[in-house]
């Protein structure tokens, strides 16, 4: 039996009165590349944000390797949605990637040569080294996404949470990103991705969670990625037989 990387118990989140997530129990085994799928408003981003403590749940607890999340922050890295920040901010690509080192530095201490080297390596990994000095607004959407990915890579975490990393990127970038994710898995890391494109789930991921306010199903893609679960999650009769 594999170790459990992330364990979520009874997680409930609500804005106003309407629950966005209802009583989620979820165990994510170590070393999987997992997609979270579900319709718009299913609470996919909310789930990630609640796990990471960005949103405060009404009830429930999150543990990372059997300890509360607050004590295990350094094991976790986050790639937010690209649209969540203002890209006209006066800074460079390298500088954004350096931000990934701030957590390990802690308060007041400044990044030095070691941090810069790590950031440059991460930029190299995502193929963005030639753009390190660019003002971030002058990068394309795909390049901005790679910068966010590099920023998370710098954290050298064990578990990666990514919110729609493929949103609005071209085919080349998508392949580049998925290759990096697969490399992470190969290195024994756990990667959790909010994903929209159902067609690519079997090709990219080995683990999947169906979510629509409640958890519908979770498990290996080959066992549970079927029309039945898709129909339960999306509410319509899902007839694209992806299994074929």
């Amino acid at each position: 039996m594999k170790k459990i990387a992330v364990k979520i118990d009874d997680l409930t989140v609500a804005y106003n009165y309407k629950p966005v997530l209802w009583d989620i129990d979820l165990e994510i085994p170590e070393g999987v590349l997992m997609a979270i799928v579900g319709p718009n408003g299913a609470g996919k981003s909310t789930l990630i944000k609640s796990i990471l403590g960005i949103l405060k749940p009404i009830a429930g607890s999150v543990s990372i390797y059997d300890k509360p999340y607050e004590k295990q922050r350094q094991l976790v890295a986050y790639v937010p949605q690209k649209g969540s920040v203002d890209w006209d901010f006066p800074t460079t690509a390298l500088d954004v990637v350096m931000m990934g080192t701030y957590g390990s530095l802690g308060w007041i201490k400044r990044p030095g040569q070691k941090q810069k080297k790590a950031a440059l390596e991460a930029l190299e990994k995502v193929g963005m080294l030639p753009f390190k000095g660019r003002q971030i607004s002058q990068l394309s959407g795909g390049q901005q996404q790679r910068i966010f990915l590099a920023r998370a890579l710098v954290q050298n975490a064990s578990i990666y949470f990514m919110d729609e990393p493929f949103q609005g990127v071209d085919a080349t970038t998508e392949i580049a990103i998925i290759n990096i994710l697969k490399e992470l898995r190969k290195a024994g890391k756990t990667v959790i991705v909010v994903h929209h494109d159902l067609q690519t789930v079997p090709e990219y991921f080995d683990w999947v969670t169906f979510l629509n306010v409640k958890k519908i199903a979770t498990g290996p893609v080959k066992d549970i990625f079927n029309d039945d679960n898709l129909t339960k999650t999306y509410g319509i009769n899902y007839k694209v037989s992806i299994q074929e």
């Binding site: 976790v76 937010p80 920040v85 957590g103 007041i108």
Partner: peptide, 22 residues
């Protein structure tokens, strides 16, 4: 000068700053 990096990262990406433990 002391909190330069904290100010900068908060301005750019507050949610991410939280996940780093600040």
């Amino acid at each position: 000068l002391l909190f330069w990096k904290e100010f900068k990262i908060l301005l750019f990406d507050a949610d991410y700053t939280k996940t780093l433990g600040f």
